[in-house]
Design a protein around this nucleic acid. Structure first.
Lengths: 211, 211
DNA sequence: CCCTGTGTTGACCACATGGCCAACAATGTA
DNA sequence: TACATTGTTGGCCATGTGGTCAACACAGGG
């Protein structure tokens, strides 16, 4: 196997392992086994264990943002873009991805390096939403006094939505989704239900696991 | 030392250790050292490591809710109660407590027992906020169509506020706090700025670390 | 053909962990 | 005082970890 692909395979295995077991419980040997190599080889691609974890996190973070940007590029209607951002948070949406986020935040408190990456990722995600809102304003679809604040609200509610949904708390997913959309509509000067109902003739493709 | 106090000391040490290092990295020996005993003794109070962690989590969860209820009991003005709930999330508020929450959520995905406790804790916290809102409605201070939804919003935004603040992301704490209050005021039919400005003559005591 | 460098293995080391237990200390009870 | 119970220690063990390294496989170019 070419070195590049091997390296990628190892990182992929590391990401999967981190999502399943968490950073602290992710061991070199398990990653190696998942990648189909022996643990001795890891040292050949990464100087030590922490570097492996950091590289895996970096890779995951970049992919998150790339996937999101890609999803947005495929549809220029601001309303549809907003849905693409919020929907994957719900039930059935990227569960592995969300577990990874949680792990990342928790780990960020213990590791300065991860903290920096985690911070950058949060900011990037926030600005992505700001971009959607601002383009919507320019397009005349949204009316919004504080795009920055509204973007933060959307992200915050979506995160909580995903967390509560996947933790299986007693809170009703439909209810949470309703708040998320209701408040977003109000912040963006949309009619009630505008987000729930796709515009006439608009298709609603399934969104790949994202953020 | 009496067995009760010893047991409490061990649990306290475990909580501190978990907050600092996370569940996975918390070792019997470190907990024992922090509690001022040797690791052999832990086996005398807890059958095994997982039981210790579970007991520590349970203790923490109960204390969170108790502290919150206590803080609420000391002040019957709905507006003040709402502030008591939201304020500790901000900068300077219980950092250890919030790290513990994050750890708990992350760990909940790996451990069914913790997941159940974590779930109950989320629900209890949500209902606590619902209670504040409903009493405020009865008192004629709040107007609110969906207390359940509004409570969820408050919790979700507060959590995100705490997370972003303590992770040190570039997002402006003042701005986040502004959204939190602005949306809460609107959901509860309050005048803009009602939450920012205490009612005339009302004192604003510092709130102990909570949630 | 050999030979140099990269990819890869499996064994090894020192170390930390959780669990276990025999021994000892402290405490209260008869 | 003598005894029984409980609290407490420190050492031991099997296991798993991250890191290291000599040895081997396997390519491509001389």
């Amino acid at each position: 196997m070419q070195p590049e692909r091997r390296r990628a395979a190892i990182l992929e295995a590391a990401v999967a392992e981190i999502s399943e077991r968490g950073f602290a419980r992710t061991t070199s040997r398990h990653v190696a086994a998942r990648a189909g190599v022996t643990h001795g080889l890891l040292h050949h691609y990464f100087p030590d264990h922490d570097s492996l974890l950091a590289a895996a996190f970096e890779k995951m973070a970049l992919e998150e943002i790339d996937e999101a940007n890609e999803a947005l590029a495929s549809d220029r209607d601001p309303l549809a873009q907003l849905r693409e951002i919020t929907e994957p948070y719900g039930p059935g949406g990227g569960e592995e991805a969300y577990r990874f986020w949680l792990e990342a935040w928790a780990e960020a408190f213990h590791s300065p390096k991860l903290q920096e990456t985690s911070r950058r990722l949060s900011v990037a995600w926030h600005e992505l939403v700001v971009g959607v809102i601002e383009r919507g304003i320019v397009a005349g679809v949204f009316r919004c006094e504080h795009p920055h604040e509204t973007a933060w609200m959307v992200v915050a509610l979506s995160d909580a939505y995903a967390l509560q949904t996947q933790i299986g708390s007693g809170l009703d997913p439909a209810e949470m989704n309703h708040v998320l959309w209701r408040l977003t509509e109000r912040e963006l000067g949309l009619d009630a239900g505008a987000l729930a109902r796709p515009a006439p003739g608009e298709s609603r493709p399934a969104v790949p696991s994202t953020h």
